[in-house]
Design a protein around this nucleic acid. Structure first.
Lengths: 194, 194, 194, 194
DNA sequence: GATGAATGAGGATTCATTCAT
DNA sequence: TATGAATGAATCCTCATTCAT
C-alpha cells in the first residue's frame, strides 16, 4: 500500500507555494523549480499531481477564486438581515480584507489577469469569476435599485474594486483608503437614489 | 560610415513592434526574437539600441506614458474654456479613445502593470504615470471641489479608469460602456456637489 | 503472507505488455509507465520482478525467441517424414505464420535488432537466435546438399527471412508475397541441385 | 555582415556527427548533447539549423539516402555497357562497398529503420528509398527477364541486401561473404533463365 | 505482493545575449 | 549599422528507479 492521502496534502501545499512564488517573483519568476523549492519538494512532483505547470497554475487560480467566493458567501450570510447598503459594503470589505493571505492572493491575481489575456483556460476562469461577482452584486443591489441601475452600479463597483486592487498592489497603497473611497461612492449612490 | 539618424528610425520601430508583440502574445510571448521579426530586423539590434531587452521594455513603457499624456494635454488644451465637468469628461474620453493604437496600448499596459510589481524600473515609471494622472485630475477638479473632495474623486476616477481598462482587455467589453458608466459616476458626483 | 505463484502470472503479463508497447510505440515509446499501464499494474512492479527495465526487455526478447523455436520445433516434428524441400518450406512458413501475435512479435523484434547493436545482453540473445536458426537450416538442408552448399543456402535463407520481415514491418507488405518469393528461391535452389 | 557560408559548413558537420552518434550509441543514445559534443558545437545550434532534433534526424536520413543513390548512379553509369548480370552485381557491390563511411551509415540506417516504423516522416523517406531501389533493380533486370520475373527477383534481391546488412551489423559479419552469397543467388538466377 | 509518492538525472528546447564579420 | 552565428543558462518535462506503506 502506498502512502495514502498525500494528494490532499501536496496539492494545497503546491498551490500555496505557487501563490507565494507569483506574489514574490511575478508570473515570469514562478518557475517549477522555484515553486518546488518553496514547497520543499521536487519540481517533478508538479507533473505528478497537476500534469504540468499549466495544470498547477489553473488549479491555483481556481483555488483563489473558490476561496474568494467562500469568504464572500460567509460574509453575505452573516449580513443577511442587514440593509442593502450594508450588504454591499460587506462585499467590498471582503475584497479588501486584510489577511496576509489576501494580500498575497491579490498580487497573484493580478499576475493571472495579465496572463489570462493570452491563455485560454485562465481567461475562462477569469470570466467565471467576473460573472459570478457581477451576479452577486446585481442581486444584492436589486433590493434598492431598478434592474438597470443595479447593473450599472454593479459594473462600476466591480471596476472600482479591480482598479483599487491594482493600485494597492502597485503602490502599496493602504487598503483602508480603497475601502473608504468605495464607501464614499456608495454613500452618494445610495443618497442619490432617494 | 554609420548611417546617421538611424536611432530615430529604429527605436520607434522597435518600440512599436514591442507593443504589438505584448498586445498579441502577452509579456511572456514578447521575446526579442518575436519583436525583431515584427520589426523586420535582427533581434540582436535590440541590444545595440536599448542595451538589452529590459531597456527596450522600459523605453516602450515610457513611450506609452508619454504618448498618453501628449494626447491628454492636447485634449485639455482644447477644452480649456469648458466647464469643470466637461474637462473631466474629456480626460476620461481620452483614456478610452478608440484608436487601434490605443486598444493595443491598453493591453500592453496591463502587461506592464503585472510586470511592474516585480521590476524596479517599470514600477518607477508606473508611479510617475499614476502621480501625473492624479495631479491632472486634482487640478481639474479643484475648479469645482474642495482640495479634499478633489483628491478623493481623483483617486476614485483613476481606479475606475484602470478597472474599466482591465475589464475591457479581459472581457473584450465595449469601451463605450466604460465611458458611459464613468459618465454616470461623474453625473452624480457633480450633482451631489450642489 | 505473499501470494504464491504470482511470478508465473505477472511475468508473462508484463512481457506481453512489453511486446505490445514496442509494437505500437517502438522501443523509444515503450516506457515502464506505458508497459505498466498496458499490463494494468504499477510500473514499479517491473523492478520487483525483473530488476529493472532492461531485465524486462531481456526476458521479453528471450520469450520471443523461445516461442519462435517452440513453434518451429513443432512444425518440423510434424514434417519429420516429408521431403527436404518441404521441411525447409515449413521453416519459412513458420517465420511468416500469420497470427496476430506473430505480427506484433516481428515488429518488436526489429526494435530489438536495432537495440541489440548497442546493448551487450540483447546482442548475445540475438546471436543465440541467429546461430540456432542457422543450425536448424543447415541440418535440414544437409539431407539434399553438401555441407558447404547447405551453409551457403542457410545463410542466404536466413538473410532472406530477415529482409522480408523488415520489409513487411516497414511497408506493411503482404506476408504471403514474402513466402512465395522465398518459395521461388527454394524452387530454383532445389532445381539447380539436380 | 554576419559570418557567411556557415550553413554549408555546419549542416554537413552536424549530420556527420549524428551518423557517428547513432552508429556508436544507437538511436536512443544519439542525444542533442552527444551530437553537439561530437560536432564540437553547442547543442542549441541544432535548433538553429534544423529546427530541432527531429529536423536533424530527417536531414540525416535524407543525406544517407541521397549519398547512397549518388554512388549507385555513378557505379551504374560506369557499367552502362556491361552485361545485365554485371550491372546487377554492381548494384549489390555498391551496397556493400567497404568505406568506413558506409559501415557507419549502415548501422545508422538500421536505427532509422526501426525508428521509421513509428515516425511518420522517417517512414516516408524509407518508402522513397525502397521504391527507388526497387525501380532501379527492375529496370536493370528487364534487360534479361520478363517484367514479372524482374519484379520478383528485384524484391528478393532487395530483401537479401537488407537482410545481409542487418546480419553484418549485428554479427560484425564479413561483408565480402554477404556479397559472395548474393553473387551465388544471382548465378543461379541467371543460369536458370536459360 | 503491490502501490502511489517522490526524486534525480537527463531530455529537448527556448531565450537573451555576445561576437565576428 | 546590422547581421546571422553561436552559446550558456534556464525552462518544462519525462523517465527509471526507490521507498514507505
Amino acid at each position: 500500500m502506498p502512502k495514502v492521502g498525500m494528494p490532499e496534502i501536496r496539492k494545497p501545499q503546491l498551490i500555496k507555494a505557487a501563490i507565494e512564488a507569483i506574489d514574490e517573483l511575478g508570473f515570469a519568476g514562478a518557475t517549477v523549480s522555484v515553486i518546488g523549492k518553496k514547497a520543499g519538494v521536487s519540481p517533478a512532483i508538479i507533473n505528478h499531481y497537476f500534469g504540468g505547470k499549466n495544470g498547477l497554475l489553473e488549479e491555483t487560480m481556481k483555488s483563489l477564486i473558490r476561496e474568494f467566493f467562500e469568504i464572500l458567501d460567509t460574509q453575505l450570510t452573516a449580513e443577511r438581515s442587514s440593509s442593502c447598503k450594508q450588504q454591499v459594503n460587506a462585499i467590498v470589505n471582503t475584497c479588501f480584507s486584510q489577511s496576509q493571505t489576501t494580500a498575497q492572493a491579490m498580487k497573484a491575481w493580478i499576475g493571472f489577469w495579465a496572463s489570462a489575456m493570452h491563455t485560454e483556460n485562465l481567461a475562462r476562469l477569469q470570466k467565471v469569476y467576473a460573472r459570478r461577482l457581477n451576479s452577486i452584486l446585481v442581486v444584492t443591489l436589486r433590493q434598492s435599485f431598478s434592474i438597470e441601475e443595479s447593473r450599472h452600479i454593479a459594473a462600476t463597483l466591480a471596476a472600482l474594486i479591480d482598479g483599487m486592487w491594482l493600485r494597492s498592489c502597485l503602490a502599496g497603497d493602504e487598503k483602508h483608503s480603497s475601502e473608504s473611497l468605495i464607501g464614499e461612492y456608495l454613500d452618494i449612490v445610495f443618497r442619490t437614489k432617494d
